[in-house]
């Protein structure tokens, strides 16, 4: 479908390239020597067991946590220079939902960089934000306090905040966790729209069953890279076993998960 129509200009410089990235908390490395170059215009799932360092990878790339070694380039340049081209959707637990802001206010926060220091938010910014909320199907809830939204709706607000930045690369930390079916559909639709526009998304994902359905590429991660590449070639039982080890036994229908990928 839309994935074929990638604008050639984007493919020249990879949106994200990671070299020898190692991150350590305390004295123990959490992820080791990650080497990865993200292809442009693809939806990439980052998959791995709990504690594999999936979120760590994203946070280290965005310099939210210090890295022990390695370098990360966004569109061939350091993050500081390409910040405006990178959108970030954090985990839902990362903020205080009791905060006195409405859904619209949260989305407008994505525009603050464009608004600039000390300047007030103008009606046109609000309009942009409202449009982004409408894209994720949340226009009706724009003025509701964020605590009074359901988990899925909160996630969609976060997504809208990233969309409003009009970035070329999106990094999303578990957007599908604890959301309802409608939200899941909305997020997937948005992801496909983004891909159609030639944009790239790296999504931390934990639901193995939907990987083949939603994504083009996959990163299998368990402290180190197990495998990366297109879903068809990499998302195999063998690789999954390497990623999850004994824990894969718990996921009974591995063959079904993987089989779906090769057939579809």
């Amino acid at each position: 479908m839309a994935s074929e129509s990638i604008p050639p200009a984007v493919t020249v410089v990879p949106p994200l390239s990671i070299h020898d990235l190692t991150v350590a908390y305390q004295r123990k490395p959490v992820i080791w020597d990650i080497d990865y170059v993200a292809p442009a215009g693809k939806l990439v799932a980052i998959v791995g067991p709990n504690g594999a360092g999936k979120s760590t990878l994203i946070n280290a790339a965005l310099e939210l946590i210090p890295r022990a070694s390695g370098q990360v380039r966004f569109f061939g340049e350091p993050y500081q220079k390409q910040r405006h081209r990178v959108g970030y959707v954090p985990q839902r637990e990362s903020v205080d939902w009791d905060f006195p802001v409405s859904a619209l206010d949260v989305v407008v926060m994505g525009l603050y960089r464009k608004v600039g220091w000390c300047l007030p938010v103008l009606p046109r910014h609000r309009k942009t934000a409202l449009a982004a909320l409408a894209r994720v199907g949340m226009a009706d809830y724009a003025h509701r306090q964020i605590r009074r939204l359901s988990g899925g709706q909160q996630q969609r607000v976060f997504l809208a905040r990233a969309l409003v930045q009009d970035a070329d690369l999106y990094l999303m930390d578990e957007p599908f966790t604890g959301v309802d079916a409608a939200t899941e559909r909305a997020i997937v639709e948005i992801l496909r729209e983004l891909r159609a526009l030639g944009k790239t998304a790296l999504v931390v994902h934990h639901d193995l069953q939907t990987v083949t359905e939603y994504f083009d590429e996959v990163i299998l991660l368990n402290m180190r890279l197990v495998a990366t590449g297109s879903v068809e070639s990499v998302f195999t039982t063998d690789n999954l076993r390497k990623t999850y080890g004994g824990r894969l036994m718990l996921l009974e229908n591995t063959d079904r998960i993987v089989g779906k990928g090769t057939s579809g």
């Binding site: 197990v226 990366t228 990499v234």
Partner: peptide
């Protein structure tokens, strides 16, 4: 030890 050299 670190990576089973299976990565592509």
């Amino acid at each position: 030890n670190v990576s089973d050299d299976t990565s592509t």
